[in-house]
């Protein structure tokens, strides 16, 4: 069970990236490859809050939420908005990669490449649950990810704003004609995705430390998570992340430490070949 817990923890990280990807993809039609870097920045913001400024954890979370949301809004205004005005979605994809590089570079230049340990608010002595061992902060990370993923899934299906963002994802022009403010929705999606990344920075950093390379480690498997779960499906992204993490951990434990990536990408290809829109992709499209 310890291996499963380990897979769930890593899976939670991939799910958070997938949630961020999907939030922006649904509302603005842009695939924000820099979302892994927003999570990386969230760990640094949480480090600043908890270690440098000695803030209590609620203020640390608030500080990181606001800080990363602001960075995400800046990214949208600088790297995305000018291209959307020219209806160049594919170029926007490239600029998010550029934004990603800028963010990781800036983090490295300003904070250095060594990992930084965050101050965590609770004892992290391991717990034994269902016969497996897990750190309390990791357990909170899994719970928080599930709560965020399910919350945003139901919000996107049941609230007017959520349905509007699905409409934009399907047809930006038609949505605009129906009176949806697509620009506001787009910038709002970046802010929400950044805010979620910031809010979870303390939990993520408790496991990974704050390191500049974190974004790159997460970006690819976050992509695999939504490919497995279904691009545009929050529930798919959430479950895709956990599935990816568990496959990764079980492969490393029982097949061999050389094989996790091969197995994960094998599953990734199998899903793409059999269900090109991912496990949950089709269901989302019917709702729209």
């Amino acid at each position: 069970m310890t291996t499963i817990w380990s897979g769930l923890v890593i899976g939670a990280l991939y799910s958070l990236v997938a949630i961020g990807y999907n939030t922006v993809l649904l509302a603005s039609g842009v695939f924000n490859f820099a979302h892994g870097q927003l999570i990386m920045l969230a760990t640094y913001a949480s480090f600043l809050g908890s270690v440098t400024f000695h803030l209590p954890w609620p203020l640390t979370v608030l500080f990181a939420t606001i800080a990363v949301a602001v960075v995400a809004i800046v990214e949208e205004r600088v790297a995305i908005r000018p291209l959307l005005a020219r209806r160049d979605i594919h170029a926007a994809l490239i600029t998010t990669v550029g934004a990603s590089t800028v963010m990781s570079g800036l983090a490295e230049v300003t904070a250095g490449s060594d990992p930084k340990q965050l101050a965590i608010p609770i004892s992290n002595d391991p717990l034994t649950i269902l016969g497996g061992v897990i750190a309390p902060m990791d357990l909170l990370l899994i719970i928080a990810t599930l709560a965020i993923g399910l919350g945003i899934h139901f919000w996107s299906r049941r609230s007017l704003l959520g349905i509007a963002s699905l409409a934009v994802a399907e047809n930006r022009d038609a949505a605009s004609v129906r009176g949806i403010d697509t620009k506001l929705l787009g910038v709002g999606a970046f802010a929400v995705a950044g805010g979620i990344a910031g809010a979870t920075g303390l939990l993520v950093g408790a496991h990974t430390y704050a390191i500049p390379s974190l974004g790159n480690s997460l970006a690819l498997f976050g992509f695999v998570a939504i490919a497995i779960g279904g691009a545009g499906s929050q529930l798919g992204g959430l479950l895709g992340g956990f599935i990816t993490g568990i496959i990764f951990a079980l492969s490393a434990r029982y097949i061999g430490s050389d094989y996790p990536q091969i197995v994960v990408f094998g599953v990734f290809l199998a899903v793409l070949l059999t269900r090109p829109r991912g496990i949950f992709g089709r269901a989302m499209e019917r709702v729209v």
Binding site: G29, L93, A227, E285
Partner: peptide, 14 residues
């Protein structure tokens, strides 16, 4: 309703 825009973006992301 068409699903192509999302698919294209996903393909480009791939």
């Amino acid at each position: 309703m068409s699903t192509r825009p999302l698919s294209r973006i996903f393909l480009a992301a791939s």
